[in-house]
């Protein structure tokens, strides 16, 4: 595979003004992610990983520095291009699932396809197919509140993959799930990563993620502390799960 960078950040800083207090959530992040990689951004809460997630996803603007998605500088995009990027290039998965509560599983999955201009019938067919892929073939017409947390997150995974994005961004995807369900979601993400060659970037402090990640970015105090390849990580994941 060619060295094809799907995400590149250069000196990204993000400063929040909370009243008179200035908080530097990110203090200059440089990272590169190759197409098809499975990346985990690890760090304690408050380390800035969610902020970084928002930067990479074009959900927030850096105070300084640049973010390139597929070699396009996100800061240069107008509102239409940004919406297009979020719709077609990036799929999002959140800790709190963030399904639209009034829509069925299928409607949630088809919404991004409708935005992308797909016909209703095609979107429906593809939506059903995606829900079958994540193991929810029998629950397409259920509303989010009729589904368990794990099932809701599966819908979110299907929705994130709706427009065959280049990147799936997952912010603490297992944070609200129990151990077993969390594992299932992780292995689902890994399967999608392998089968569809979609790049997965996950902000997490779930050590179960280490096992499937190609590389791990450790974040502390708004900086990248170290980057590890999976092969170099010595932690036996099985031992830590009990904590």
């Amino acid at each position: 595979m060619p060295e094809d960078m799907v995400v590149r950040t250069r000196g990204v800083k993000r400063i929040y003004h909370l009243g008179k207090v200035v908080v530097e959530a990110l203090r200059g992040i440089d990272m590169e992610v190759r197409r098809g990689e499975y990346i985990s951004i690890m760090g304690p809460s408050g380390s800035g990983k969610s902020t970084l997630f928002n930067m990479i996803g074009g959900l927030d603007k850096p105070s300084e520095g640049r973010v390139y998605i597929d070699e396009v500088d996100v800061a240069q995009l107008d509102a239409y291009e940004l919406a297009w990027l979020r719709c077609r290039k990036i799929g999002y998965i959140f800790q709190t699932f963030n399904l639209i509560p009034v829509m069925t599983a299928l409607e949630n999955v088809t919404l991004p396809m409708i935005f992308a201009g797909m016909s209703l019938d095609d979107a429906r067919d593809k939506g059903v197919e995606l829900l079958e892929r994540v193991g929810l073939g029998t629950r397409v017409h259920h509303k989010p509140f009729e589904l368990s947390g794990g099932q809701q997150q599966r819908v979110a995974v299907a929705r994130a993959l709706a427009n065959d994005p280049a990147i799936v961004l997952a912010d603490e995807p297992t944070g609200n799930l129990d151990l077993k369900t969390g594992k299932e979601i992780i292995s689902l993400l890994k399967t999608m990563n392998r089968e569809k060659q979609v790049t997965i970037i996950s902000a997490t402090h779930d050590l179960k993620m280490i096992d499937v990640s190609d590389r791990i970015f450790w974040i502390r105090d708004g900086r990248i502390e170290r980057v590890e390849r999976r092969a170099d990580v010595s932690i036996e994941v099985g031992e830590i799960e009990g904590e």
Partner: peptide, 23 residues
């Protein structure tokens, strides 16, 4: 350069908007 890689066509048909709002 942006033109090649990033499109700008995003749609929401009116009938779909009505259905979503009503539901």
């Amino acid at each position: 350069m942006n033109q090649e890689k990033v499109g700008r066509q995003i749609v929401l048909p009116f009938s779909v908007s009505v259905r979503i709002s009503f539901n």
